[in-house]
Design a protein around this nucleic acid. Structure first.
Lengths: 210, 210, 210, 210
DNA sequence: AATGAATGAGAGTTCATTCAT
DNA sequence: GATGAATGAACTCTCATTCAT
């Protein structure tokens, strides 16, 4: 029921447009089923049924159930990591406080955009192999943030990578809490302001004194 | 395979000494199996076997598999929450920075003491009912921290509970990363210093300006 | 779960008064549990608990679960058979129609007196060995009725035993239907009159023409 | 071990010829196992094994064990009820005595045709839901017989439905006894003549006097 | 390529029965 | 004699995966 696959690669590349459509349908179905029935309720038959294909077809595109689930996690992580990378690139050279604000905004928005999925995916993350996927995505974000910190207009850091890692982790924790609570608007607003304070405060404390 | 139990209560209280020993053996075995085989590998048979008892005996003390797993999570959360509450009580009236340091120290130490278990338990957290258990533990800690913030010698907060919640979440995130990485001493040391900076920085930024 | 026992004999005779009390308690408990939880819900533990003794004690009086259940069936069948035998003895020498009326009355009353139990016991009857118990009870009643038919004042029968058997069976069928329906008073009244007609009609048709 | 199913519906209709064969094999196997091992011995594994399919396949056609067993009962009841309905329709307008004879003949023959199965099925009848199935079948027969009584050439009844119900019950009782005894030819012959006398005698006694 | 019936290992759970205390 | 914790075989049911059509 858990354990991500030997090979996380899908079985065949969806080059043809029909294949592409099938794969997309399966992904969509997976998300819906995952959200509605939880990880253990996400059976291959149920996903196939929801996607309007047969189980056999599903297995034509994914080596096994784990591969399929891993695909979901990867897709989501890519989205969030991309958002953070974009923000980091955009703010290169800006003032520290502005960079912090932009990072928080980018991260929170990306997560909220796929709130339900994001929540459901935590279960997949616990599967064997999920940690690696997450670590990889975190590394992408960490590196982007570290570069931003190194290129900031008004501050210097001894170990930008470490600071970036801690900052990222610190944003994720409270974010999860809010998602778990169902992301009510009031809490989301509070989260944005507090995470901004957190990011600014931490970075100010961690920077090399001028 | 997931879903925490109808009744989280154990089936019978281990009053006799033999029973006590049996229950302890089962708990120990659960932890070992959980660490070694993951959540889905933590089958009732495997746990019973490891504990040196029969499945039937296991079911004499736990209504079902979920109850057993929930017991583990509860036990661990209780430990950590207790440590945070103790630290909060101890630092009441101290200066903000000192309080921050003590909190970080208490939290990190409590987690590290059961690093392996802590890591394995995240999977249980995804089970139906796990979130509630975690939310309850977090509330305990949040409340303790909020009380500490409200009673600090040199600072005031508009919404201590909210700040406490965010702070707690912000500590948990990076902590998990380090546990996931296997908690190598070097990263642990780095974590302590960075989390201290984080706590101090965030609290300084979130307090009502003097 | 089914199969009546190797030896239908209870393990020890309840000679002492304490033993007698225990056995009675167990019997009572069995009936209550059987009525409330059905045959498969009549577990030894449940019965013992209800009787206020331990499982071990239960096994001191009954070789096994089947023996215990068989005891219930035997007890009930004895009651009904006794009632039929009494009526048969009492009506010896009476007119055929009067004998028929008395038989119906005795049988219906005996069954209704333990309606709930009677119903619950049908399940036990299906167990291996139950058929024998029932056959034996039926033989007792059949023999009593046959004797009555042979000694009737105004009629003669070629094969009293066969007629007695069919008559008895014919009474049981509709009786069961009414018990299954919950024995509402209206249906019971209807049953009495119809069974009387049935018994009179059948016996009149089966007798050797004068 | 008992309790008939939530949904008595089979899981999928056997449309394809292979499926059809599988379902038939399962039904046959169920009957054989039920006869040979009794109700509690009729385990899903045993039936599957006997049918030459895997347990999984069995569960593809039946929601659960109860559904499967209920299917057997339903099938048998349908057969017998059909026979009685046919006879009733055929004898509409006949003389009372002839109608009685035909009913007895139809009922006895239908039961004897599946004597072994019939006997084994009584155990299923005790399961939760079994009573309903039987009640429904009885109602079908009762209604058919009542219609016959109402349309008889030479007799009238105050409450044909009630009389039909009692008559039916009265036929079932002795029939069961004979089946239980293994249906030896001599007893079967005796049964036919006696049940004929019974039906004629009862109906004659129950009719409105001319 | 697509289908979906068939597979079967293996999971959770129950409960009659025993026996050391 | 009484207890009740321990036993473990056996049961029902699921679901990832395959392969003949």
């Amino acid at each position: 029921m858990s354990a991500l696959p030997d090979a996380l690669q899908a079985r065949k590349q969806p080059l043809q447009s029909r294949s592409k459509a099938t794969v997309d349908a399966i992904r969509q179905a997976s998300f819906q089923v995952l959200i509605a029935h939880g990880l253990d309720g996400t059976t291959t038959t149920r996903v196939a049924e929801r996607a309007g294909v047969s189980v056999g077809t599903l297995y034509q595109y994914y080596r096994n159930r784990s591969t399929m689930l891993a695909g979901l996690l990867e897709w989501h992580l890519g989205t969030v990591a991309g958002a953070v990378e974009d923000a980091s690139a955009r703010m290169r050279g800006a003032a520290l406080a502005d960079a912090a604000d932009a990072l928080v905004e980018a991260f929170v928005s990306a997560k909220l955009e796929h709130a339900e999925i994001s929540l459901a995916l935590y279960a997949i993350a616990e599967m064997h192999g999920g940690a690696e996927l997450i670590a990889a995505a975190k590394l992408r974000m960490e590196t982007a943030i570290a570069a931003l910190l190194a290129a900031t207009a008004d501050a210097r850091f001894d170990d930008p990578q470490a600071v970036a890692g801690v900052l990222l982790g610190a944003l994720i924790g409270p974010m999860c809490d809010v998602l778990n609570a169902g992301a009510p608007p009031a809490r989301v607003a509070l989260l944005r302001t507090q995470l901004t304070l957190l990011a600014r405060g931490y970075l100010a404390a961690a920077r090399v004194p001028a």
